[in-house]
Amino acid sequence: MGAKRDRLQVIKDILNAIKDKNGRIKPTHILYKANLSHQMMNEYLKELIEKGFITEENTKKGKTYSLTNKGFDYLSKYNLMVDFVDSFGLG
């Protein structure tokens, strides 16, 4: 069993899962790729939509989630963020 992931890491895993699917993904794929329970996934997705990291679209084929520019920024600057948070004890 791996070490428990912190919040920033879980968000990174979700956003990476979307990015790896060319920026658009179905909820079930997030579930498997980010290794989350259904409830946790819904909570995180709701938060990520509120914070503007992803957008939700309802299509004929079902719900999909897309990465926004802010989401891409998060991924590109993830290490910097984690470094600051860890070194200043904000985690």
């Binding site: 919040r7 920033l8 968000i11 914070k51 503007g52 990291f53 920024d73 998060y74 600057k77 910097l80 963020m81 600051f84 948070v85 904000l90 985690g91």
Partner: peptide, 11 residues
């Protein structure tokens, strides 16, 4: 800056 990127309250 970190808050703007992460949206977390602590930063």
């Amino acid at each position: 800056k970190v808050y703007k990127l992460s949206g977390e309250n602590q930063p």
